[in-house]
Simulated assay, not measured.
Amino acid sequence: MAHALVAGGGIGGLATALALARHGHRVTVLERQQTFGEIGAGIQLAPNGFHALDLLGVGRQVRERAVFVDELRLMDGTTSQKIVAMPVTGPYRRRFGNPYAVVHRRDLHAPLLAACRAGERIELVADAAVQRYTQDAAQVTVVTADGRTRTGDLLVGADGIRSTVRAQLVGDGAPSVCGHTIYRSVIPIAKVPRRLRWNAVTLWAGPSWHFVHYIIGGGDHLNLAATLDDGAREPVAGRPTPRAVVLARFPGLGDTARLLLELGEEWRQWVLCDRDPVEVWTDGRVTLMGDAAHPMLQYAAQGACQALEDAVALGDLLAGAGDDVAQRLARYNAVRRERTARAQLLAREMGSRLYHPAGEEAAARDAMLGALTEEDLYDKVSWLHGAQDFLRAAAG
């Protein structure tokens, strides 16, 4: 069996470790931070994500921490009128085989981490930032920031959108700044009026902005995320932002959405980035996964799900691997690139054409969505939410 090195101990890296260990490989996970943990706020999990988690052996543990929503709801952020809603209960679950849920990022990361810690074939190494790698026909060696080296049969770069493994493998520079600023806050549910504790992922769309909220933390907290298409060009990650600044940037919100936005506290700011899809993210015994391979904007709510799919696909394709590791990694790249590229481009399109139009374009969007039946909506998301065989789930 092979010895795999995994750069990055986030959701994708830990999922990859579990997938590879499940097929008998030994795995060393190298995490740049001093501890294994997860920052951020809420995350959405569609049925394809739950299917991957079940295959990784942690589906039950994530379900115990999740909030299962009743619908995905798009609202007019200025008039407070409903544009469209897609139920994700009975018929949806029967069609796609799993629920749709929201969790705090740590409630997804923690079960993955616990399973890795319990795995005899998995070694977790903190404070080990991978800086570069070398490889030959037989092995790959990584060098960490403190000068240490580790050698294995393959390297998986799961080190995020600013991946150092990608920088060497693809060499495409810094991520693209998309010009959208997002402000995030998580508040206790006790602060929220009972009439507004909707069991739904709700998005309020307005001209060049949108506002999303949903309950997380097993029902204990409300996740708030307000996004502005402001042409921002400098990347920002987690900058504390005064409440007054956030409120002043969204003056057009209708009464209900405004009330919820005003509940936010301890806001933090990000300027969103992604990358263009690439054809090749594998080089010999080195490959990428998740945000390192195909980082996407959050608008299709598929970033984590696609990383989980990658992990399962990698594990399955490397089952029984010997001297043919490079060929199997090339196959993984070929199997996954079309589907993930389509998800990347969909996320961009949703952020511009679906959530941010104004005037006649917004009216056309409302008419188009309002004409769709429940079954029509399911048909549109089927290629994403319905995937279960991640070695065959190409673009659609």
Rank of each mutant, 00 (worst) to 15 (best):
M1A: 11
V6Y: 07
G8S: 10
L14Q: 07
T16A: 13
L20S: 09
T28F: 03
E38T: 00
A46Y: 05
L53S: 08
L56E: 06
V58I: 07
V58W: 08
Q61W: 08
V62E: 10
V67Y: 13
L72Q: 10
K82G: 05
A85Q: 14
N98V: 00
H104I: 00
R106V: 09
R106F: 07
A110L: 12
L113G: 05
A115D: 08
G119R: 13
R121A: 13
I122V: 15
L124Q: 00
A128Y: 03
A129D: 10
Q135N: 08
A137P: 09
T141M: 11
V143N: 12
D159S: 09
Q168C: 06
L169F: 02
A174W: 01
T181P: 12
S185M: 12
I187R: 07
P188W: 12
A190R: 14
P193D: 08
H210L: 12
H213F: 09
Y214N: 13
I215K: 07
H221V: 00
A225N: 02
A226E: 03
V236K: 10
A237M: 13
A237C: 09
T241L: 03
V245H: 15
R258W: 04
L259F: 10
L263R: 09
D274K: 03
P277N: 09
V278N: 11
T282A: 13
D291Y: 07
P295A: 11
Y299N: 01
Q306V: 05
V312S: 01
A313I: 09
L314F: 05
L317F: 09
D324S: 11
R328G: 03
R328I: 02
R336M: 14
A341C: 00
R348K: 11
Y355K: 01
P357E: 02
E360Y: 02
E360D: 14
G370M: 08
A371I: 03
L372R: 10
D379R: 11
S382K: 10
A393K: 04
A395F: 04
